[in-house]
Simulated scan of single mutants.
Amino acid sequence: MTSNRLTILLSKYADNNLSAAETEEMFHLIAETPDAAVREELTLLLKHTQPVLVYDEQRWAPTLQRAIERAEAIRKTPSQVPSKLIFLRKLAVAAAVTGLIALAAYQFLQPSTTKNETPKAIAQQTKPIVAPIISKAVVTLEDGTSISLDSLHVAAAKKSIPVSIADDGTLVYEEKEVTAAIHTLTNPRGSKAIQLRLSDGTQVWLNAGSSVRYPAFFGAGGRQVEVNGEAYLEVAKDVSRPFSVVAGNTITTVLGTHFNVNSYTDNGPVKVTLLEGSVRFSAGESSVLLEPGEQGIAGNKLVKIPVDVEDVVAWKNGYFAFTHQSIGELANELARWYDITIHFDPALAGRRFGGGIARDADLQQVMRILEETKIKCRLEGRTLYLSK
C-alpha cells in the first residue's frame, strides 16, 4: 500500500500537482521506504505502463531542483541526508533521462490514445513485429561446427564437451579440464539476451547482435575472452589468473569485477563501463584505471567519464534507457532488438530522447510512442521509416 501511495505522489509531484501536505508526505515516505523497494515498484510500472520518450529539460530541471531543495527542508538527521538525497536525485533525474518516474506518471504527462485512435502508419501494418521471446544463440566449436541451443545436449555428449543448459536458460561450462578449445557464442539480431557461465565461474550476459569468443576451459595461465557487440560480465575473482576482455583495439584487464563492454561498430568507439571493483582499460599505448560509475571511451584519445550505470546495463535488466540518445543511436538499438532496418530523415538528426521502454513491448507500441513525440512512422515489411 505504501509503495502505491508513493507512486501516486511521485506522479503528481512530477506534474507539479502536489499540495504542501502531500509533498511532505512524499518525502517522508521516501525516507522511510527502502531504496530497493521503491526502485522495484517503478521497474514494475516500467513493464506495464506505456512509457514516454520525450526529454523536456525545461520541465524536468525545475522538478529536480525542487526535489533537492524540499528534501533538505525535511531531513531528519544529517547522517540520513546523503544517501536519501542521492536516491531522490536519481529518481528525479530518471524522470528526465530513463523515464522511471515518467512511466508512473504517463497519464499526467501525455495525452492518451483511445482504443479507437490508431495511427495510420500502424494501422497499415497487419502483422505485428514482436519483441524476441527466445534466444536464437548458436555455439560454434573450434572446428567450425555450429550448434543451436536446442541440440546442444546431444552434440555436447557426442563430442565430450562439458557444457549444458541450466533450467533458467544459462549456458554452463563445467570446471573440467578438456583439450584446449576455443568456442564462440553468437547471439544474432532479434534474439533475447543470453547468459553464459564460463568454466571459471565468470558470468557473461550477451546482448542481441553480439558474440563472445572464449576457451572451453581456462588453464593455469591468464583468462582471456573476445567480445564483439555488447556484453555484461561478472568476473570470478582469481588473483593468480588475471581476466582480460579484448574488444576491437582495446583490452580490459581485471581480477574480479562487474563491468559492461559495448563494441558495436555502429555505435562509435568501444566503451567499457565499471559497476564494481576496478579495471584497467587500454587502447594502444594508452590506458586508464576505471572506478565504479566511470566509463572508458576509446576514441581518438582514451578518456573516462562519469555515467549512470543503470542506464548502461538497462538492456540486461529488461528495458531500453534512451539517455539523451540521438535518433541514430535509438534507431541502431531498436534495429538490433527487433531485427529490422530503420531509415530516418536527416532533419531528425538534432533530436534527443529520454525515457524508457520495456524490451518486451512490440514494435507497434514503440511506434505509437514515437508518434507521440511528433515523429511520423511508416513500416513497410521489416523496414521502418521515420520522418518529421
Results as ranks from 00 to 15, higher is better:
residue 154 V to Y: 13
residue 373 T to V: 13
residue 74 I to S: 02
residue 87 F to N: 03
residue 50 Q to A: 10
residue 95 A to P: 09
residue 114 T to M: 06
residue 341 T to E: 13
residue 278 S to I: 08
residue 57 E to P: 12
residue 60 W to T: 04
residue 98 T to L: 01
residue 53 L to D: 03
residue 227 V to N: 00
residue 184 T to S: 15
residue 192 K to P: 03
residue 263 S to C: 02
residue 130 V to W: 06
residue 36 A to C: 05
residue 103 L to M: 07
residue 11 S to Q: 05
residue 385 Y to T: 04
residue 344 F to E: 04
residue 112 S to F: 08
residue 280 R to K: 12
residue 139 V to R: 08
residue 381 G to V: 06
residue 299 G to K: 14
residue 243 F to K: 00
residue 349 A to V: 03
residue 338 Y to M: 03
residue 137 A to L: 03
residue 51 P to T: 09
residue 199 S to V: 04
residue 124 Q to G: 15
residue 265 T to L: 10
residue 253 T to C: 12
residue 386 L to F: 10
residue 163 V to M: 07
residue 189 R to I: 12
residue 16 N to A: 13
residue 131 A to N: 02
residue 58 Q to A: 15
residue 122 I to C: 02
residue 376 K to C: 01
residue 273 T to L: 03
residue 335 A to Y: 02
residue 334 L to G: 02
residue 341 T to V: 11
residue 327 I to Q: 14
residue 304 K to T: 12
residue 352 R to I: 10
residue 128 P to E: 07
residue 224 Q to H: 12
residue 192 K to A: 09
residue 68 I to S: 11
residue 286 S to Y: 08
residue 127 K to W: 06
residue 122 I to N: 00
residue 6 L to Y: 01
residue 334 L to V: 15
residue 257 T to E: 09
residue 133 I to T: 15
residue 320 F to Q: 15
residue 325 Q to S: 14
residue 373 T to D: 14
residue 108 F to M: 13
residue 243 F to A: 06
residue 157 A to N: 15
residue 125 Q to I: 01
residue 262 N to I: 01
residue 358 A to W: 03
residue 20 A to D: 15
residue 386 L to K: 01
residue 277 G to E: 02
residue 352 R to W: 07
residue 365 Q to F: 13
residue 292 P to Y: 00
residue 134 I to K: 12
residue 64 L to M: 13
residue 16 N to E: 12
residue 34 P to L: 09
residue 134 I to A: 13
residue 248 G to M: 01
residue 83 S to G: 02
residue 207 N to M: 07
residue 183 H to T: 10
residue 46 L to Y: 08
residue 350 G to W: 00
residue 292 P to I: 00
residue 25 E to N: 06
residue 343 H to P: 05
residue 253 T to V: 13
residue 235 V to A: 08
residue 335 A to N: 06
residue 89 R to E: 11
residue 161 I to F: 05
residue 306 P to K: 14
residue 242 P to W: 11
residue 185 L to W: 08
residue 379 L to A: 13
residue 259 F to N: 00
residue 107 Q to A: 14
residue 167 D to H: 09
residue 354 G to M: 08
residue 201 G to D: 03
residue 310 E to K: 13
residue 56 D to H: 07
residue 125 Q to L: 11
residue 70 R to V: 11
residue 331 A to D: 02
residue 4 N to A: 14
residue 193 A to L: 06
residue 193 A to F: 09
residue 68 I to G: 07
residue 50 Q to F: 05
residue 275 L to V: 12
residue 82 P to V: 06
residue 135 S to L: 10
residue 29 L to S: 00
residue 377 C to N: 13
residue 232 Y to A: 10
residue 94 A to C: 14
residue 235 V to H: 09
residue 115 K to T: 13
residue 151 S to H: 10
residue 311 D to T: 11
residue 327 I to R: 14
residue 357 I to T: 01
residue 306 P to L: 11
residue 190 G to H: 14
residue 259 F to E: 01
residue 143 D to N: 06
residue 2 T to C: 03
residue 265 T to F: 03
residue 320 F to G: 05
residue 28 H to I: 06
residue 97 V to M: 11
residue 20 A to C: 02
residue 143 D to W: 05
residue 92 A to M: 04
residue 40 E to H: 12
residue 80 Q to R: 05
residue 116 N to C: 12
residue 118 T to Y: 12
residue 169 G to Y: 06
residue 326 S to Y: 12
residue 38 V to R: 07
residue 136 K to M: 05
residue 33 T to E: 02
residue 254 V to M: 07
residue 213 R to M: 07
residue 86 I to V: 08
residue 241 R to D: 05
residue 273 T to S: 13
residue 109 L to C: 04
residue 382 R to D: 04
residue 262 N to E: 02
residue 24 E to A: 08
